[in-house]
């Protein structure tokens, strides 16, 4: 009797602290984003006077209307959508092909190629900035969205490949063998049978690469100089560097930059855990 009473107190104590710690993590994760949102809807005149209030006494959408109608941000936004979207699509196609080959074929040189791709995950990408600039400049690919897409695709292919491979590994070989006996070539079987079954993996890869390309800053800064080819990160950063910083407008732009990435993430995070179980290499 006393024993059960003892354990139930312990249990309550355990779950109490469990929920408390979870709550701390949730607050730590969300508070900065909440603050971003809060400042973005605070009218300019009370921004400083109500600097530390949890919620402003008045709210406004002015910052958003300004950013959307009177700044370059819609243009940066479109550039980022084009770059991140194309990169995600192209990378996923290439990674699906390569991941499939890693999962299904034994071929000469496979170990070397896998090792090569693993190593690319370890070396500092900053050291590629100068040479890539030198290679792309004569090709007319600096200051162009195409150049960014090529570079981002190459950077993301290795991880995307390992992610796709872990999903292909989860699909029995029998299925494409059955399809090949039914009348498909191997490639047709891959396209018609295996790929539809890997849709969660494709979604996870698309989302992962999209987020990565959406966030990339250093190469975008280096390779792009004109306003017309600027992506969102570059635009926002140059906005910050200018005088007379308008915090409300910047944070409104920040919230807008957050939306696509977070939408993608919420859709795919379930599959990411699943995919990483097999092939965790790099975030």
């Amino acid at each position: 009797m006393t024993l059960t009473g003892h354990t139930s107190t312990r249990k309550m104590l355990y779950w109490g602290s469990h929920y408390l710690m979870i709550a701390a993590f949730v607050i730590f994760a969300l508070f900065p984003l909440y603050w971003l949102l809060k400042v973005s809807v605070t009218p300019n005149d009370i921004l400083y006077t109500e600097g530390v209030r949890m919620w402003p006494s008045r709210t406004t959408w002015d910052n958003y209307t300004f950013v959307l109608t009177q700044s370059n941000f819609p243009h940066y936004f479109m550039n980022s959508v084009i770059v991140a979207g194309t990169t995600a699509a192209v990378t996923t196609v290439i990674a699906a092909l390569t991941g499939y080959a890693f999962s299904r074929f034994a071929f000469r040189g496979k170990v070397i190629i896998v090792a090569l791709m693993l190593i690319t995950q370890m070396f500092p990408l900053v050291m590629l900035i100068a040479p890539i600039f030198k290679i792309l400049a004569p090709l007319g690919l600096t200051d162009s969205l195409t150049g960014l897409i090529i570079v981002y695709t190459a950077f993301n292919v290795p991880f995307a490949t390992f992610l796709m491979q872990s999903f292909f590994d989860g699909i029995p070989k029998d299925l494409e063998e059955a399809a090949m006996i039914d009348g498909n070539t191997r490639f047709e079987a891959f396209r018609a049978i295996i790929l539809p079954l890997t849709l969660p993996g494709v979604a996870a890869t698309l989302g992962f690469v999209f987020t990565a390309a959406w966030s990339e800053l250093l190469f975008a800064l280096m390779l792009v100089s004109s306003e017309s080819a600027s992506t969102f990160p570059v635009g926002l950063l140059s906005f910050v560097s200018k005088f007379s910083v308008d915090f409300g407008q910047m944070m409104a732009a920040g919230v807008l930059a957050l939306i696509p990435a977070c939408l993608f993430f919420l859709l795919i995070q379930r599959y990411l855990v699943q995919g990483l179980t097999a092939g965790a290499v790099k975030g």
Partner: peptide, 23 residues
């Protein structure tokens, strides 16, 4: 909860940087 606590990972790094600078 899992989706919420993992959210910072999805925030573009340049934005996390700016946001914390503002904080």
């Amino acid at each position: 909860i899992q989706a919420l606590v993992f959210l910072p990972w999805a925030v573009p790094t340049f934005l996390s940087g700016l946001n914390w600078a503002w904080m």
